[in-house]
């Protein structure tokens, strides 16, 4: 098979991971060292730490390899460094409580409590700002591209759900 069509899987045996002073990751695999690599979740919703694509820092973002299962294939510091990188990249506050939703001129202004503190954000009322991951799990993407997660709609109070009703 052609080389480009093969998937290279990275694991602790064929890959060294180190953290730079600036908080980036350098990776050494197949005798080549890559600096400031990017970690990309290929299934950010349905398989968070599985099938992570490791890519070069340059514009081309070429794939260096994939990590099939971070928890299984890496241990210790390497795993922790990578988990940290992913956490930063995919930071999504979880909405604990909805204080209010105000609709004005086609925009909806949310005031919510999240696990990272109180937050206010704006979405367009009629655009699909809600990504339904399942019947009960929802991601809200605001106008600036920030994301908020509601892990379980059923855990909200009836009043909170009613406020969300027109978006779902």
């Amino acid at each position: 098979m052609e080389k480009e069509l093969e998937i290279i899987f990275l694991n602790s045996k064929n890959t060294e991971v180190e953290k730079t002073g600036g908080g980036f990751l350098n990776i050494k695999t197949g005798g080549v060292k890559y600096e400031n690599v990017q970690l990309v979740r290929t299934f950010p919703f349905s398989g968070e730490d599985q099938y992570i694509s490791v890519r070069t820092a340059d514009e081309e973002a070429r794939e260096i390899g994939m990590i099939e299962d971070l928890a299984r294939d890496f241990q210790g510091n390497a795993r922790a460094y990578m988990q940290e990188q992913l956490e930063i990249r995919y930071f999504t506050p979880v909405i604990k409580k909805i204080n209010s939703i105000r609709e004005e001129g086609g925009s909806s202004y949310f005031d919510v409590e999240t696990d990272a503190g109180r937050s206010r954000f704006v979405i367009r009322t009629n655009e699909n700002a809600f990504i339904k991951l399942s019947e009960t799990r929802v991601i809200i993407e605001d106008l600036e591209g920030n994301r908020y997660e509601i892990p379980d709609l059923n855990k909200l109070t009836a009043r909170e759900r009613k406020k969300l009703d027109i978006f779902l």
Binding site: L5, E6, I7, V40, R41, T42, F43, P44, F45, S46, Y51, S53, R55, A61, E63, M66, I131, L133
Partner: peptide, 21 residues
């Protein structure tokens, strides 16, 4: 993923914010 790689689709899919999701 294997099928996408073979179809040269893997790279553009990874560039989308939600990937295969």
């Amino acid at each position: 993923i294997r099928a996408a790689v073979l179809a040269s689709a893997h790279d553009f899919i990874c560039k989308m914010p939600d990937g295969y999701d």
